[in-house]
């Protein structure tokens, strides 16, 4: 671990909706350039944390900083450092894929919006669908477009709120590949997920948010230490249904 300041730092975060206490003192930090998974069941407060970090919601107490800026004191600097991909693909269904990308590029005052859009369309395999309205896209295509929109302007920190919820296995693997690619190029990724497998595959560090607090956090190896040591057993390993599905689907020429 380097001594660089964390890309995301959260401390003592509290948030209630009326009488319902959603966050009861959440603390964690995310090292720059790493993938951090916030794991939790539905309603655990993952989205609330992400909304606070994206300056969409104010915490009741506690501090939250992104890229060295405080979310309450310097919200504009925070917004310039992040991109949010929300739980539901926040794309404009009436515009075409390319128009969505050009729109975001113009809003972020990026040079050559058209060029930026075309590059991203190619990278995310959407070139053929570029001129079609997003309303005609599949769930996986929408999600890819959504993530592509988040990359415009090269924000150093990206929040992905349940990026693979509702995707088929192939779509999920594509998104995983992109997330890994982002981290490899130095972007900090904070992702929330309810899929244990996703956290296991992608994350450098994992935190489990349960009933408003982080109950466990660390690397996968750290978390494994919390359980009894692994036993060696001889078991014939059957292929998982996912492996079968992918194998069968790949045989078909598309």
């Amino acid at each position: 671990m380097s001594t660089a300041p964390p890309a995301v730092h959260v401390s003592g975060l509290h948030k209630s909706y009326g009488k319902l206490e959603v966050l009861k003192g959440v603390d964690f930090s995310v090292a720059a350039g790493s993938i951090f998974a916030l794991l939790g069941s539905n309603g655990a407060g993952k989205t609330t944390v992400v909304r606070i970090l994206s300056t969409l919601l104010k915490p009741d107490s506690g501090t939250a900083g992104v890229a060295g800026f405080d979310v309450l004191a310097q919200p504009e600097r925070v917004r310039a450092s992040i991109s949010l991909t929300g739980q539901f693909a926040a794309v404009d269904a009436i515009l075409t894929g390319r128009e969505n990308l050009v729109m975001v590029a113009r809003l972020r005052q990026v040079k050559n919006p058209g060029q930026v859009a075309d590059d991203l369309l190619r990278r995310f395999g959407l070139t053929d669908a570029a001129g079609r309205r997003v309303a005609t896209y599949s769930g996986g295509m929408r999600r890819r477009l959504d993530i592509a929109m988040s990359l415009i302007g090269d924000p150093p920190v990206i929040f992905l709120d349940e990026p693979t919820t509702g995707l088929d296995p192939e779509g999920r693997i594509e998104v995983w590949k992109e997330i890994q690619g982002l981290a490899d190029s130095g972007t900090t990724v904070l992702l929330t997920t309810q899929y244990l497998e996703e956290a296991e595959k992608l994350a450098d560090r994992i935190a489990i948010l349960h009933q408003g607090t982080i109950i466990v956090s660390g690397t996968l190896a750290d978390l494994r230490k919390l359980l009894p040591a692994a036993k060696a057993e001889l078991v014939e390993r059957q292929p998982t249904l996912e492996e079968i599905f992918l194998a069968v689907v790949k045989k078909e020429p598309s």
Binding site: R51, L84, A89, A90, V91, V104, L107, G153
Partner: peptide
């Protein structure tokens, strides 16, 4: 409803 409102509000605009 679609979430694009939130996307815009999380952007530096």
């Amino acid at each position: 409803q679609s979430g694009i409102f939130e996307r815009f509000h999380s952007m530096p605009i």
